[in-house]
């Protein structure tokens, strides 16, 4: 099996890397949408996450990867039963799951379905968990999400928002925790996402292949080094990855208590009004993003500067746009940021 390319060794693409790391700090920011051409390290970044992020503690034998420390209400039914019976939940460490959801996956496969094997060989009605169960507490990655059927995207965003997968089908009635960060990537030239869905992603990133010669050469050099000696290459970047991991761990502890001054809240609201986002999703994503960023940077409170950095990612996909308008959304957001925050 391939040793993944280390996250820290990805050249450039800072906005994408930041967006992904911030969702590791605060998964409630919501999903991340990555739009860009092929060969821009989108898949590489996502697949590098299990090696990068701190391993998590998982209840032994739990099919949904429950956290033994979480309150009973957030455990799956199996673990709750075990806890109520007075058993101590034993746990082990496991890497953060990154689950691929391939195009054309059936709804059964995604949400889970009747376990045919047990139904047929034992005559038992049992539930076979789907991809959403495996992604619990981790990441669900959909490459070419713009080509995924709308109803599946909708379903994913719903589950991601509620943190719970509710299955009612074929006589099965199951609900289990499914808290994950949805990461979707795609090439907009091959089809767009429905505007209604766009709004439901927390952050969005536009990646482009760099045309900077030096950067491209650096990319190829690292890739070449990794191809020839994957273990050695991974070892070389282990310290950088560990550094990022420490940042994430520290930020996770701080993020919930980090103060957000009223002035910053006001600015965020003004910013959303200035670019004309509908609803409060934009403001929420902006604030959570800024807070996670501040925590990651080790700041004592959230400042306007954090808003400035995160605004394009948090807002650009929410602008009510004339689809035929050429002025990029990013430009409109940056313009609004400059107007509001220049003085």
């Amino acid at each position: 099996m391939r040793i993944p390319f280390p996250f820290s060794a990805i050249v450039g693409q800072d906005e994408m890397k930041r967006a992904i790391l911030l969702t590791a700090v605060d998964p409630t920011i919501g999903g991340v949408l990555i739009l860009g051409h092929r060969g821009t390290a989108k898949s590489t970044a996502v697949r590098a996450l299990p090696a990068l992020l701190p391993p998590m503690s998982v209840v032994d034998g739990c099919r949904y990867g429950c956290d033994p420390k979480s309150p009973a209400s957030r455990l799956c039914a199996d673990c709750q039963t075990r806890m109520n019976a007075g058993a101590k939940l034993r746990a082990h460490k496991a890497p953060v799951p990154v689950v691929d959801l391939p195009l054309g996956a059936t709804e059964d496969r995604v949400v889970g379905a009747l376990d045919l094997e047990r139904a047929l060989t034992r005559g038992e009605k049992a539930y076979e968990p789907g991809l959403l169960a495996r992604a619990n507490r981790g990441y669900l990655y959909v490459d070419e999400i713009n080509l995924l059927e709308d109803h599946l995207v909708d379903l994913l965003l719903d589950v991601a928002a509620t943190g719970e997968n509710v299955v009612e089908r074929e006589g099965i009635s199951v609900r289990h925790p499914a808290r994950f960060v949805l990461v979707g990537s795609g090439n907009p030239e091959e089809g767009d996402l429905r505007p209604q869905l766009l709004d439901r992603f927390g952050l969005s990133v536009e990646v482009t292949t760099t045309t900077d010669l030096d950067q491209r050469v650096e990319v190829i050099k690292r890739r070449d080094a990794c191809d020839r000696d994957p273990e050695g290459f991974a070892a070389q970047w282990a310290e950088a990855d560990a550094e990022a991991r420490r940042h994430v761990e520290r930020a996770r502890k701080k993020v919930d208590t980090l103060p957000v001054p009223d002035a910053v809240l006001r600015t965020a609201a003004q910013l959303c009004a200035a670019v004309g986002t509908d609803g409060v999703r934009g403001e929420l994503a902006l604030l959570r993003g800024a807070r996670a960023l501040a925590a990651y940077d080790g700041a004592r409170q959230v400042t306007a500067q954090h808003l400035r950095v995160i605004a394009p990612s948090a807002l650009r996909h929410r602008l009510r746009r004339n689809v035929l308008d050429d002025v990029g959304s990013t430009t409109r957001v940056t313009r609004a940021v400059t107007d509001l925050l220049s003085d």
Partner: peptide, 10 residues
Amino acid sequence: DSLRAVSFAV
């Protein structure tokens, strides 16, 4: 555009 192409070329 794709950097995979250059990587393969190498």
